[in-house]
């Protein structure tokens, strides 16, 4: 990548706080784009020196290879508790955020995230909703859609035996300790920019000590969904966004 190209200068390549690591993700996986969004937010807020990431277990657990901030690896589902420990260890200073997938946060760690919010933590959580377990090969997750075929719902997920897709952004918005809850996606530049705005707002709730900040990214999992990347974008737009509408569900500056 040359600095100069026929007399033109670089407008954009990557955020300052992002490493240029070769990608560990499957082709078309948007996890690395989410890491890029968060790094851009960190750059623009100037918090790279104060940010400490806590990653759960799952594909999102590899995002740290792109992120030039201190990182701690938590156990599956336990990132909110580990993040709380870090925040207290830093005397409630620092910007502590968690990266968690739908298996990590909505399955094994559901109690942990709700308890962290109920405890009044001012953490920030970036939630990766790709409707399945990617790392382990595409099993059903709490966010898997009705009828969606996965390796553990071979006939398609049905409510009678597999229950219902869980809506985390709405659930978080209903909790008093949450100051900001939004659901975003990464389809087109407009989406990207509003996702970054959401992440910055969520971080700001922590900086201003208002309450918990939660941003749910609806993102693709081509191999998990059994589609090639272009099809997974279409399926995301058609099926996922229908089940998981985008938008800001809660944004308050004071919590009584």
């Amino acid at each position: 990548m040359s600095e100069q190209k026929a007399g033109k200068k670089v407008i954009y390549h990557k955020p300052e706080s992002a490493f240029e690591t070769s990608s560990l993700f499957c082709a078309g996986c948007q996890h690395s784009i989410i890491a890029r969004v968060v790094c851009e937010a960190i750059d623009e807020m100037g918090i790279q020196g104060d940010a400490v990431g806590v990653s759960g277990v799952g594909c999102h657990g590899m995002c740290h290879v792109y992120m030039d901030v201190d990182f701690v690896f938590a156990l599956h589902g336990r990132a909110p508790g580990t993040a709380t420990g870090i925040k207290r260890g830093l005397s409630n200073k620092g910007i502590v955020f968690t990266f968690q997938g739908d298996g990590d946060l909505a399955a094994i760690g559901l109690g942990d995230i709700l308890s962290a919010v109920n405890r009044g933590e001012k953490l920030t959580t970036i939630f990766f909703n790709n409707a399945g377990y990617g790392t382990t090969g595409g099993q059903m997750a709490p966010t898997t859609l009705q009828g969606q075929v996965t390796t553990t719902s071979p006939e398609g997920r049905d409510a009678a035996s597999h229950g219902y897709p869980v809506h985390m952004a709405e659930m978080m918005a209903s909790m008093r300790g949450v100051a900001y809850s939004a659901r975003v996606a990464l389809i087109g530049l407009k989406n990207f920019m509003s996702a970054k705005k959401a992440v910055k707002t969520a971080f700001q709730k922590q900086i201003d000590n208002v309450g918990y900040g939660f941003v749910e990214f609806v993102c693709t999992c081509p191999p998990g969904w059994g589609m090639n990347p272009p099809k997974s974008i279409q399926w995301l737009e058609k099926a996922m966004l229908e089940e998981y509408p985008l938008g800001e569900l809660k944004n308050v500056d004071i919590i009584e």
Binding site: V72, A74, G81, T82, G85, G89
Partner: peptide, 8 residues
């Protein structure tokens, strides 16, 4: 797990 985070 909170202790782990704090110890870090």
């Amino acid at each position: 797990n909170m202790l782990y985070g704090c110890a870090c």
